[in-house]
Structures are given as structure tokens and as C-alpha cells.
Design a protein around this nucleic acid. Structure first.
Lengths: 190, 190
DNA sequence: GTGTAGAAAGAACGTTCGTTCTACTATGGC
DNA sequence: GCCATAGTAGAACGAACGTTCTTTCTACAC
């Protein structure tokens, strides 16, 4: 099974979250029971319920964690320096690479949304916040690079990223080339 | 709740499938139990297990039904006459309209794939077949309309349709305009 | 009429679900 | 030494899961 083993030494809470995140992403949320998480994290029920009010809180923490990771990517890319145009290219490249490397089972947020129909629930609100942040951040980056109609282009890029993640999952890696080409054309990069 | 009531008169099997399809799409598959389906379809366990070996067969039938409906759309559009180019335009328009009208909760196949990680399982095979058919049918339509590089353009269109369905679900109807514009540009329609 | 099949009704199966609980142990601060 | 905290261990809860079963009733074919 080669489960991504949360290093024995880390805290139970970290192991719990890391294990849950891995399982939720790999197998879907409703398809994974707390017993699975507990046994693979090597901890017990009491410990889990000490740190999280319930399973849904674990789901929320999983998505918040995913959100934080992606924000980290952006922060790192921004700090890495380079012209605004280079940053735009780096973002597109980063999305393509992420899809084929770390997100071969699709987008965690889209997948979660498939299982959580209630648009007012906590889970969907986290998804909503993430997507809003992503779109506006993209718009800011594009605007800095003097891309015309940054808002609209950003919306298109979000669409394309969704498609790339779904496509790599269901159709294979060839999709990432399609994404790169289309995205670069949309933002006006040769 | 205003459940889409499967007309009392239809056969138990039809009511079962219709109800299950509605519930699976609206609330996710693992999130719906057979008891729910049974009570909303107004039938009993014994009847269900006479017609379907189990829940998974019901899921499979739901996706096959969805597949058949979409193939029906294509057949109808093709029979409606018109030039190949008009057919291409009609397909794009049909997708945009479908997303905002009948598939406001996203793509049934993408949503199902989120819950079924096993690529070799029956469910994922149905999804695979559907996507392959869709892409190749699109390529044929584009080729007939003398669109250059029909295969590649078809792949792009599949991507865009995925994005449109996800986008309308999570971001709202404005996405459908983005889809129309981008899709028409990709296939070379003014 | 008799026989057969499909549907309704509902009890019951064992399993798993998420959750709560008690009891015991190890750790660290005062 | 003492208390609080956080961990382990495991029993137990009621509810829901998917599935199997028996029984009764209706309808249509022969």
C-alpha cells in the first residue's frame, strides 16, 4: 500500500491531519471512515476527539491545509523575484507541474465539492474562500504584468486550471501540454 | 423538499433508477443510502434487489443513463440538419446551455470519479468510455467542419466543457459566457 | 382455475458509521 | 509529592449502512 507514513516522531495531531489529508484526497471523503484514519495514524479515538470536534472538522482542516500550501507556493514564487511577466509564466508552469506531480487525483476542492452539496455548509465556504482568493490573486499578478482585462483573464485561467486538474486525473498527462499552450495564449505569452 | 417525483405510474424499476439518479447527482453517491432511494421511489428493498444486484449496479445504471442522454442530444443535433460549421456552433451552445440549465451541480462523471478512486473499477470504466466517446465524437464533428487539427481542438473542447461545468457549479453562471467565448475562439468561430 | 412472476411489506442479518465513555499511563510544572 | 494535561487502550453507544430473508398480495398466462 505504501501509505505516506507520517513520521512516527511528529505529534499525534499532525499525524492525524496528515494521514486524514492523504486518505481523503486519495479515496474520497465519505469513503474513508475515522477507524481507517485512526489506525493509519497510529493513534486512538480519544486523542482524535481531543483535537477535533468530529470528522467534519478534520475535513475542514484538510482543506484549510491544502489552501495554506497553495498560498505558500504563491508566496514563494513572488519572493523568488523576477519580472511580473516572468511570474505569470512561472504560475502557469507551476500549475501544470503541480497537476502532474502532486495532484494526480484531481483538485481537492472540486472533489470535496462533489461530496458536499450544501453551498452554505462549512466545507463549501472554505472552498468558496479558496477559489475567491485564487482568482483575485491571479488577477493581481496579471494586472502587475500589464495584461489587459486582468479580471477576465484570471477567470479564464481559473477555468483552465480546473480543467487541467480534472483532465490529468481522468485523461492522463497529455492534458498538461494542452493546458500550458492554452493558458499561455490566453494571457498573451508567445 | 420538492423531490422530482417519478410519476407514480411508471414501473418500479424506472422509478428506482430515476430517483437514484436524481439523488446521486444532487447529493453525491456515498452520501445517499439505499433507504433514501427506496422511500423516495416508493418501493421496497426486495423490488430493488430483484432489478439490481446491489447499490453499485444502480450507480452504474445512473451513469449509463446519463451517457445515453448526452448521446441522444448529439444524435438530435446531428439530425436537425445544418452545415457542419453550424453543428459545431450548436454543440458549443448546447454545452453552455446544459451547464446552466440541467447540470448546475457539475458534471455527473467528474463528480462520480471524485468518489471512485479505483481506475480499474466498473464505475471508472464507464466514465472512461463516456469521455472517450465524447472526445472522438467531437473530433469527428470538428473534422467534418474542416477545423484544422481536429483531434487537438477536440481535446481542448473537452477541457473547456469540464471547466464550464465545474465553474458554473462553484462560481456561478458568468462562467458560461467565458466558456462560449473561449470555445468559439478555439474552434475558429468568430 | 391454476400457476407463475413481480411487487409490496417488513423483519432481520452482520458491519460499519461517528461518537462518547471509563480507566490507566506518561510527562512536565509547581 | 501533586496536580494538570495529553496520550494510549478499549468497551460501548445508537444509528445507518448494504444485504438477505420470509410472507402476503396482485396480475397476467395458460
Amino acid at each position: 500500500m505504501a501509505t505516506p507514513i507520517p513520521s512516527e516522531s511528529s505529534s499525534p495531531r499532525d499525524r492525524l491531519l496528515e494521514t486524514a489529508a492523504g486518505l481523503f484526497y486519495a479515496e474520497g471523503i465519505k469513503g474513508v471512515g475515522v477507524d481507517r484514519i485512526l489506525s493509519e495514524a497510529g493513534t486512538t479515538r480519544a486523542t482524535m476527539y481531543r483535537h477535533f470536534p468530529g470528522k467534519e472538522a478534520l475535513v475542514a482542516a484538510y482543506l484549510e491545509r491544502e489552501d495554506a500550501i497553495i498560498r505558500g507556493y504563491f508566496a514563494a514564487a513572488a519572493e523568488a523575484g523576477g519580472s511580473p511577466t516572468e511570474l505569470v509564466a512561472a504560475v502557469i508552469e507551476g500549475i501544470a507541474e503541480d497537476a502532474t506531480r502532486y495532484h494526480r487525483r484531481g483538485c481537492p476542492f472540486i472533489n470535496a465539492a462533489a461530496e458536499y452539496p450544501d453551498a452554505d455548509g462549512e466545507i463549501r465556504q472554505i472552498i468558496e474562500r479558496h477559489r475567491t482568493w485564487f482568482r483575485s490573486t491571479l488577477a493581481a499578478v496579471l494586472d502587475a504584468a500589464s495584461v489587459a482585462d486582468a479580471e477576465r483573464v484570471a477567470a479564464s485561467l481559473v477555468l483552465l486550471r480546473d480543467a487541467a486538474l480534472v483532465g490529468v486525473y481522468l485523461d492522463g498527462d497529455t492534458v498538461s501540454a494542452d493546458f500550458r499552450r492554452t493558458a499561455r495564449s490566453v494571457v498573451g505569452l508567445g
